[in-house]
Design a binder for these strands. Sequence first.
DNA 1: TGACTCATGTCAGCATTCTGACATAGCCTT
DNA 2: AAGGCTATGTCAGAATGCTGACATGAGTCA
Lengths: 152, 152
Amino acid sequence: MSQDDAGVDLGTSLGYLLKETSSVLRAAMEAVLRPLGMTVTHYSCLELLAQRPGLSNSELARGTFVTRQSMNVLLQALERDGYVTRPAEAPVGKALPTRLTPRGRRSLAKASAAVRSVEVRMLSGLTEAEQSAARTTLRSMIRSLREPEEEG
Amino acid sequence: MSQDDAGVDLGTSLGYLLKETSSVLRAAMEAVLRPLGMTVTHYSCLELLAQRPGLSNSELARGTFVTRQSMNVLLQALERDGYVTRPAEAPVGKALPTRLTPRGRRSLAKASAAVRSVEVRMLSGLTEAEQSAARTTLRSMIRSLREPEEEG
DNA sequence: TGACTCATGTCAGCATTCTGACATAGCCTT
DNA sequence: AAGGCTATGTCAGAATGCTGACATGAGTCA
């Protein structure tokens, strides 16, 4: 009675469904990472560094969707515990390239396998075509949300 | 070199893409709700109450993906500011049915229109069929993640 | 009837993240 | 060469959400 007026029907809203999926996925990841003593942001940071070594604090923050201040706190802890290393001085500019240590790599290996199992479970009922379509759809949503009015 | 070993390729991972989409959507919602003096959880609570009046604290918490403790804090603020009302005593059990006040309804109307515009923008590049397929896919993911092993 | 289990509301303390602010390094324009 | 602009790293304080804990009410089962 109000969906066409001003309300947002939560039962069919893709935004709501997106939030729900993200919430359930996060809970599932936390469940498998907890036994390894790792949080989701913790893991995301290591995974990002494995694939793109030398990322700076700010770049890691953008890649894990937190502020650079939060990432800074995390990186200091990871460095203190020997999972990553950063040079004392920046080779260029102010950005400090971060790299995994052997210990960080070992820790990531276990976490990555656990997270992969969660993703496999999440996709278990979907065909390759459906997964590919989902990727295209999500990328379209991101693109539309990032552009205020026009689209190029 | 490691995607098939233990790594999760963030460039194609649906989980990562899901998190990114959710993050961008949340930022867009915050941007339009901030001028109205409302947070996303604040809005979600009111929207939920508009569609399903009489929800309890715990039910609202589940519907907005926060703990019942967090929702309790929010509800106390909303009640104090006159957006919702709760009976002093529970009609049955301990659950207190919450309802929007006229003021809450007015406040929601503006917020709902703003959020709807964000969702419209998000879906602007998608056909109805693509949106429907996305809903089906997301629901499948949620279902798979919630069931430990079997699926019925 | 009484014990057990479960869900709820609520309080207190803790953890994590964010906002605000500042100094510095590189780039671009003049 | 100098000024302005942007990005970065970092510190401090505030806000938000979560975990732990407790008491209460309802349903279940012996």
